[in-house]
């Protein structure tokens, strides 16, 4: 691990200011992904700004009838919150489908949104990777791509966003709240928070350097049956090959977002009108623009079948 200096910020704007003024600085939340990457020297920050003292660890009701989840709320605390289990079950389900108990006790809400891809070529510093080292090339294209993206990818990058929590937040229409060094705040809809790789795969999201996530807000509950179905190579503690976060109403209408298939949680709102007519029609619309590799083409029928299983499960 490269040497770095460490400090604890006292307010969100203070934290944003310190990081914004230092290109080598990074925020430190739980650290469960960042420290892993620092040990491998994939991330080499020169200064860490610990955000644990910013009092961002509460879940509070909003005036709009929703919930405001502090950026530092742990995955365990969020999944366990009674309001979340009752009104936003898909979020609790997605969180407990990811990582291990130890990691969920430490991982934060903001950190989970910011976790980086698990593409094996991003992790192997001997390989070219446009995300890790812009302009070096992509070893995943034409390489071992079984776990990688089938849609929304580019000629520069076929990495996937690895998380589960954000897939549920996408189907819940969450909003990411941030603050910048000058104290200005921003509300970013979750659908435009994670970016597509395009020709700048080094970017994972819409944040500027030094912009700090302070909270994620959920709108008023929409009712319905909440399901998170994750398909993976082992039954627990593995990343998704494909996952489906769905909220289905009694009349068969609903919403669904897919994990494990793209550089961001994948949701096509226009395809949701097809949900009452079944998984095949909806999935065909969701994956119309897919560009899978030979290794990962299986993910598309797998996504269709996972959605079919979800719809069968919620049928009254």
């Amino acid at each position: 691990m490269k040497s770095f200096t460490y400090e604890r910020a006292t307010t969100p704007a203070d934290a944003a200011g310190i990081v914004a003024s230092n290109p080598g600085a990074r925020f430190l939340g739980g650290g469960t992904n960042l420290l892993d990457l620092m040990k491998l020297e994939i991330e080499t920050p020169t200064h860490l700004v610990d955000v644990q003292d910013l009092k961002l660890d509460r879940i509070e009701p909003t005036e709009a009838g929703g919930l405001r989840i502090g950026a530092f709320v742990t995955n365990t605390a969020l999944a366990s919150d009674e309001r979340v289990r009752r009104d936003y079950g898909v979020l609790s389900r997605a969180i407990v489908a990811g990582a291990s108990g130890q990691l969920r006790n430490k991982a934060t809400t903001a950190g989970n949104l910011l976790q980086r891809t698990r593409c094996p070529y991003f992790y192997d510093t001997n390989q070219p990777c446009n995300k890790r080292k812009p302009g070096s090339g992509c070893a995943a294209i034409g390489g071992y791509s079984r776990q990688l993206a089938v849609i929304g990818s580019s000629d520069a990058c076929i990495a996937t966003y690895p998380g589960d929590m954000a897939v549920a937040m996408r189907v819940l229409d969450a909003t990411v709240e941030t603050v910048r060094a000058d104290g200005k705040t921003r509300s970013i809809p979750i659908g435009s928070f994670h970016t597509l790789p395009g020709d700048t795969p080094e970017r994972d999201n819409a944040l500027d350097h030094g912009e700090l996530i302070t909270a994620v807000t959920l709108p008023r509950p929409v009712g319905g049956t909440h399901v998170y179905r994750k398909v993976r190579d082992r039954a627990s503690y593995a990343f998704a090959l494909v996952s489906v976060a769905a909220i289905v109403q009694r009349d068969g209408s609903g919403r669904a977002a897919f994990g494990g298939v793209a550089h961001r949680p994948w949701r096509v709102e226009a395809a949701e009108a097809a949900m009452p007519r079944g998984a095949v029609e909806m999935s065909n619309a969701v994956f119309a623009d897919a560009r899978p590799t030979d290794d990962n083409a299986f993910k598309i029928p797998l996504a269709t079948r996972t959605l079919a299983a979800v719809l069968a499960e919620v049928k009254p």
Binding site: Y6, L28, G30, G31, T32, L35, D36, L48, D50, Q52, T76, G101, Q102, L103, N105, K106
Partner: peptide, 19 residues
């Protein structure tokens, strides 16, 4: 490396002592 910190288990390898 699992240890219990403030009543909750964590991976001690993925946490800096200064935290």
């Amino acid at each position: 490396c699992t240890v219990i910190v403030n009543g909750e288990r964590i991976n001690a390898c993925l946490s800096l002592a200064v935290q």
